[in-house]
Design a protein around this nucleic acid. Sequence first.
DNA 1: TTGTAAGCGTTATCAC
DNA 2: GTGATAACGCTTACAA
Lengths: 327, 327
Amino acid sequence: MVTMREVAAHARVSQKTVSRVFNDDPQVRPETRDRVRQAMSELGYVANPIAGVFRSGKVPAIGIAVPDLADPFFAAIVGAVDDAARAADMSTLVTSLGDDGDREADVVRTLLRRAPSGLVMAPVAGDQSYLESAAAGIPVVFVDREPTHLPGDTIRHDDAVGARRAVEHLMVQGHRRIAFVGDSADLPTTRERLVGYRAALEDAGLGLEERLERLGVLDEHSAVAAIAALQELPEPPTAVFSSNARTSMLLVQHVARAGFGFVSFGDFPMAAALTPPVCAIDQSPRTLGELAAQRILERVGRPATDLERMTTVLPVKLLERGSCRMP
Amino acid sequence: MVTMREVAAHARVSQKTVSRVFNDDPQVRPETRDRVRQAMSELGYVANPIAGVFRSGKVPAIGIAVPDLADPFFAAIVGAVDDAARAADMSTLVTSLGDDGDREADVVRTLLRRAPSGLVMAPVAGDQSYLESAAAGIPVVFVDREPTHLPGDTIRHDDAVGARRAVEHLMVQGHRRIAFVGDSADLPTTRERLVGYRAALEDAGLGLEERLERLGVLDEHSAVAAIAALQELPEPPTAVFSSNARTSMLLVQHVARAGFGFVSFGDFPMAAALTPPVCAIDQSPRTLGELAAQRILERVGRPATDLERMTTVLPVKLLERGSCRMP
DNA sequence: TTGTAAGCGTTATCAC
DNA sequence: GTGATAACGCTTACAA
């Protein structure tokens, strides 16, 4: 790789003059400048980006950590962050965290070793306090899920209200026995949606039943088992509320086969094309990503109060589609 | 940020000794080592990753550029590359290229400014020759699509054979008039699939009709228009072969409504759950990503013949599902 | 207008 | 075993 020193030797000037020319310093005599430019192109000089980064100490990049890059919901967040980063002339560093929280701290620490200017993340672990030291000095924004044991900016959806609205919509359709099916109860989103589900039932005077709440649906197998268990109840439900899009994608066929009504928290690809079309609470993952990136960019370089606690809650709306109807 | 120099002063040793302790050099007297360790933890020393990177000149990261991070096909590739990178203790730098090739060179150059150790990309432009200089010195592997005007390693699927098999399968079901609907004819994948489509028809003695080939389907609107145009033909087709998953997701509802048989090149989320289930040529985007990352990792650090031309063609298989049947 | 020197934080070389 | 010193490529401060 050609260095400024080599260009300087070739143009018979000092390295500093090359630096000046390279940075368009007007204080260079035109002849000198031309000679240096000449040398640069002859030698094919390309600035070493790492050297500059080294000096400034900040890498112009936004890090983003999500449970799974291939999940359509998180992929949309990542896409939005990347678009915002590119527009701000920054790069995007990504990493998948996986579903089980054990590796989160290590994976995030590895990401932070690249010294990005900011971090956007959808946490999976039950404790993000490690960020206090690991992410010291850089802005962090959480998306979709609030952090635990750490104050921190968050952009998320209104989980409780969305869940409540979904369940109320099922009740409007005439459903009285409504099941809740979700992934991990450790996730703040799932917990909040469960809160909304219960609140809607209680407000309607319907009472809660533990047997109607099935958690831990993370794969095809557990999806089948959950629906089967609901069907085998003495009094099966007539509808299912699924707490997130991924779970919904696993459930949808089995729910339809069982003849249950269905509402999903979170729209997903092809949901409207299924038979019946899947009624869903519409989230906007791209907006999560856009706002998070925007907040990171605002904070970068600022004196910064580091990890603050400014939570933005995005409203959700119901996409009325056929799957919620009574048979 | 605490530096080695500070730790050295605190432990009353030279900076180099701190470096030795930090790198577990056995050539350090235990007492000295303990003293340095002590100083490190007292001062909370954390290595500056950028300095090391600066010295070595290589950033332990794999860059990956795809048309759209949110597209399930490319998201799967990115996820696989990221998993491989993480396993090799590398980071993953991503970028979306967008659909129109104009910005590709700029976007990729920006990505390369982070000096990743290798680059994986699914090109969108009609010319990748800019990489000859832009990516000089680092291994590049193309996925899904061959590069143009540049030799280069590629991992892709067998487009022509897959398309042929899809069309042949439709013919086995009794279809005789089969349309081709695809995105951009500029993409090598689309072109190859068109070749396979035509070959299958010609081999069956069915002859080609330009009116049955609709390209440029990139959004809902053009999808509707394409199907409408096919329906309005004097002799409409009885089946549609869609050249890629994204187009298929746009087409599927309209195709079903039109009563056409359907096969998609590329499976997509929920395809099997639709009515009728969508028959598809199964690709393995994760495998593309895994092999690409593996090849990058093999090449990193090697003397390297840089841009070689070793193309790996993955076989595809047909997922038989109901949508291909005759009404 | 141009050049010299120092320094960013680390590792490598080579003495001691 | 340990340490002084240079080096990585560039920018900033200061000199000439």
